[in-house]
Nucleic acid binder design. Structure first.
Lengths: 337, 337
DNA sequence: AATGATGATCGAAGCGCTTCGATCAAACTA
DNA sequence: TAGTTTGATCGAAGCGCTTCGATCATCATT
């Protein structure tokens, strides 16, 4: 059995409260006693029990992260940023994957908000209205990553989705494309909506009429995006370029291009969104809009730590810039219009 | 404030111990009382506090995972398998990344083994002797993933590294290669050693003398593997194929091939190990030895759960099969010998 | 009918810690 | 010198739960 605070106290000849105070810096303790306590801690190789600590109302040094799915590079990159920042701050990470099941969100938040964790990070929550307001009211620290627009009190970190989509589309237009398909994301997320809007606005700005037939939902996933792209490619007047709402979708689109016996990128250009590691690894490498994923994770941790230190701090919302990364998957259309 | 067991007890008109018993099934409680307790739980939307539960000696429903680094797909894949299996079993995951710093391992294990977690999963521990024996002695449940050979009591799950390397090398030989380079992994891991041995044994079996110059360490990472491959390629009698100890190294090797102005895979074939997602996404797609990474994670969780249920259970060591995945990165040598 | 056995329920202790109020000695004031 | 303030240290309560032993009906036994 590991040593307890009581044993440390005995060995140092002081009370447990004194030990607690020196360990937490909660109260001034005279140098000689401090010294004795520290020595006892050293000798016993004592470590505070985080569970007891947390029950008694102290810091647990763990923060909770709720994530929809681990299987995607997108989450992985954000997770990396979070992990890095948390490690620097001496926190551990309690990870909960909802596997895209809404029900699990409530349970998780409920369970952790008054238990082990000092704060919560919510990545792409799909049903936030169900539980965020109470958290906020209790001043329980939390930060939402990559979702916005469902309330106006939650601290969030997001990226410039509209801007990124606008620039991607404009780039395609500048290459000479006029028929540009769009494989949209899951429409219950604000990022999907914003990207669609960026696409439409860029079209409009260039005087290209919006064609409803050129937009299909791909739900941010490869198989449905493959299907969506097939549909687009089979149109009487098919697109010469396709903008996919994220990189994973872009790969589905590329699959479809190959499946139709077309040459990529010569016959159809493709542009993605996110810049996950696979985008750079693919050949031809994928042109895409980079979201600073790891940076978003780091930023969210920074904010969360601020809220933990000072729960009544006013809500902040941080927006990070996206960036067009030009690689090899886009060319001018073969037969320029 | 969320409801406590006491409030549930009051509302149901029973003692807290009765509530605890019905919630945990630790003791028979008559149907009418059970019914009342359950209704009170329902009405209050009560959830057991995992912290208090764990302090008092009950289940915390969290297991700890120690992982060297999150930045690599290899870890990500294993993590996926773990996460999936854990979710099915109703456990949460406390993640701790050591960022390859040995010191952190001891601290983490020390901290978690007698606190919050019911069991530990250790991925690629680098300094296990320092803390595993005490854990074992205390019958604290843990499972080591992808490392072996440092003791003979720890439960482990590994894959057939030797076999995979042997087959990869044999495949290259069958294609006609005789000069086969090897970019080795970090030599303090048993998997690196086993793969090297598989390579040597396949060579020997084919009657090809082992050439020390054809082996360079790449430490499982891209930049050093790039350097290693450069060195190999600059040899007076350079290899016509290079076997990299993992996929990340293989990408470093490919970088080097391009850097030397050679055509890939026409001039130099490359084969990797692991089959991370990027291997399939790359073009030409990477031929590699698949380790069932997610499956290893799942298996480890399964074992851990068994140990949690029955700590005195004898040590098991599970070995999962690797598999050669032939894709596009290997061809017969240009000038067959 | 009285005693013993059986078994559901309860009360209380305790898990390891934090924290509030009490204590007691030293230092200061008049 | 007596009275007051100051501040370091301690004791004890309590966080929400589990679990052990005690209790008190109920039922079987003779």
């Amino acid at each position: 059995m590991p040593p307890t605070i009581k044993q440390v106290a005995e060995r140092a000849g002081v009370s447990t409260s004194t030990v607690s105070h020196v360990l937490n810096g909660t109260h001034f303790v005279s140098p000689p006693l401090t010294e004795r306590v520290l020595r006892a801690v050293e000798e016993l190789d004592y470590q505070l029990n985080p569970v007891a600590r947390s029950l008694a109302g102290g810091r647990s040094s763990v923060i909770g992260l709720m994530i929809p799915e681990l299987a995607v590079s997108y989450s992985g990159e954000i997770l990396r940023g979070i992990d890095e920042a948390l490690a620097n701050a001496g926190y551990d990470l309690l990870l909960h994957t909802t596997h895209n099941q809404r029900v699990k969100e409530r349970v998780f938040v409920h369970k952790l908000a008054h238990g082990l964790t000092e704060g919560l990070l919510l990545l792409l929550p799909s049903d936030p209205n169900a539980y965020l307001a109470p958290l906020y009211k209790k001043q329980f620290p939390y930060v939402v990553i990559d979702h916005q627009g469902f309330d106006d009190f939650s601290p969030t970190v997001v990226s410039t989705n509209w801007q990124g989509a606008f620039e991607a589309t404009r780039y395609l237009i500048e290459l000479g494309h006029r028929r540009i398909g769009f494989v949209a994301g899951a429409s219950h997320t604000s990022s999907a909506l914003e990207r669609l809007q960026g696409y439409r606005d860029a079209l409009q700005r260039a005087g290209i009429p919006f064609d409803h037939d050129l937009v299909r939902e791909g739900y941010f996933a490869r198989p449905p995006s493959y299907e969506a792209a097939l549909h687009l490619l089979d149109l009487p007047d098919p697109p010469t370029a396709i903008f996919a709402a994220n990189d994973v979708s872009a790969f589905g689109v590329i699959d479809a291009i190959h499946a139709r016996g077309l040459r990529f990128p010569h016959d159809v250009s493709v542009i993605g969104f996110d810049d996950i590691p696979e985008a750079a690894a693919a050949r031809p490498a994928l042109t895409t809009v980079r979201q600073p994923l790891a940076e978003m994770g780091r930023t969210a941790v920074g904010m969360l730590l601020e809220y933990i230190a000072e729960p009544e701090r006013p809500t902040r919302r941080i927006t990070l810039d996206t960036e067009l990364i030009i690689r090899e998957s886009c060319m001018p259309p073969k037969r320029s219009v």
